[in-house]
Design a binder for these strands. Structure first.
Lengths: 251, 251
DNA sequence: TGTCAATGGCATGACCTTAGACCTTTAAAG
DNA sequence: CTTTAAAGGTCTAAGGTCATGCCATTGACA
């Protein structure tokens, strides 16, 4: 009666957790992963235009990859015009990528990733408010407090949409960073990568920027003040507002 | 005066985000990753003893790895005595791992991972309460509600410490699963893997089990009742209590 | 009972990745 | 000006990973 329950197989539970926990061990080739990670870091403004990437040997070690592989990745970035490389002492690989304003010439490849992107909005709602809570609960060092205030100022000071977008990402990463938790930082980095792709795909409204700036201020204020609950609530609101906006535009 | 600020390099900000966002592209070899993931799933009870793993071809595809690589991983599990493989139609790879009671014969390799494990407690505090909130916010299908109640019952019914440990993991994975968010599920899976390793390393107290069972009940109750705030608060309490216990034992 | 299909077992060749050593270039240091 | 050290550029041998196709085994089904 049941569709072929072979003795062993049907011991698996109905709503099978096994179907759900097994994830790809790794997406693609190592060098593609490197390209993606570096490109994301650059686009998010973690490495500003004009600044140098760490030396290849150091980068390779930090990314857990051989120098040959890392070099292939850098060659990819160079081919894409995101970095320029010079040799000799004092040389290195320098970021030549200038942030571009959102919604320039359509949305390349957003539609195909719709599922992943919608998921990232849910995940963000989980991760970022939690990170805020943790950040606000900790006693922050002077340099950590400085990182937060500086990042916030950079968001406020941004004059064009492109710089503002990067400063926004950096602020969120800064908040994650002051949790002191590598896993949390990784999660926020992943989320911000997706978010950036979405926000680049839509036109920016002045109203939205003003609105989110207010939220940013109250988030940072709450974290610096050590009010974990308030910090989380503020970030929740921020995530929900952004998500509503983006879900509307993804259909 | 400053320690050698070469023109380009010092454009990197003081509290350098770049130092913090770059993560290993992938830990180790693909087949090690497979072993780890499958072994964790088995130890957490996602694949119960006696049940069959999916066919190699299917598993390989789901894990994004070639069958050759996956087979090497399975060979590893077989060598470790966790699975048994039979050929022919109706054959397959069957889990032969029986859960073991915590704290049997010391704590192999917990000390070296101390940093990672402590981090996972912070990360858990971020992820699981958030997952609860999302789960409680959704309208759950009948089978999702069933999954939750069943998982809860299994925790309560567990008669020895070993099965209780697995049922506990499965309940947490079930909660993640009903968020419907793959990224969230992945995060909780990772966290539960670490948590399991820690909890296996300590003796279980009847008191603690009783305490956490109460918390489990109120968590599931809140999720089923759609009370997101209450669900999150209950899970926060649960995480904090477990974390306090474990931090004490990790030094 | 015989056939078949689902499953694990195996082999091949192309490609990727690694580790390490060594070369070349070039600015900084003396 | 010479030396030096810090970078990127190149090579090689060994091993990991992949896609694919085919073989071997064995329970299910007619």
């Amino acid at each position: 009666m049941n569709p072929s329950p072979t003795s062993a197989r049907n011991l698996r539970s109905a709503h099978d957790l096994g179907d759900v926990v097994l994830r790809p061990v790794r997406g693609h080739h190592a060098f593609e992963g490197c390209v993606e990670q570096l490109a994301t870091a650059i686009r998010l403004g973690v490495f500003a235009s004009g600044s140098a990437l760490p030396p290849e040997r150091e980068l390779a070690e930090r990314m857990g990859v051989s120098r040959a592989t890392l070099r292939e990745a850098i060659a990819g970035l160079r081919a894409a015009g995101m970095v320029r490389t010079t040799r000799g002492r004092g040389g290195g690989t320098v970021v030549s990528y200038e942030p571009t304003a959102p919604a320039r010439g359509g949305t390349p490849g957003i539609a195909e990733r719709k599922g992943e992107l919608l998921d990232s909005l849910v995940y963000r709602r989980v991760v970022e408010p939690g990170a805020c809570y943790v950040a606000a609960s900790r006693t922050l060092s002077a340099s950590e407090r400085m990182l937060l205030t500086t990042s916030l100022q950079e968001v406020d000071r941004a004059e064009d949409a492109a710089t503002h977008r990067q400063a926004d990402s950096r602020l969120h990463l800064a908040i994650a960073s002051v949790t002191g938790s590598p896993m949390t930082i990784e999660a926020v980095t992943e989320v911000q990568g997706c978010l950036h792709d979405m926000l680049q795909a839509i036109p920016v409204l002045e109203v939205n920027i003003e609105h989110s700036s207010r939220q940013h201020r109250s988030i940072v204020e709450a974290i610096l003040g050590g009010d974990a609950t308030k910090a989380r609530r503020a970030m929740e609101q921020h995530c929900d507002d952004t998500a509503a906006l983006l879900r509307g535009l993804l259909g």
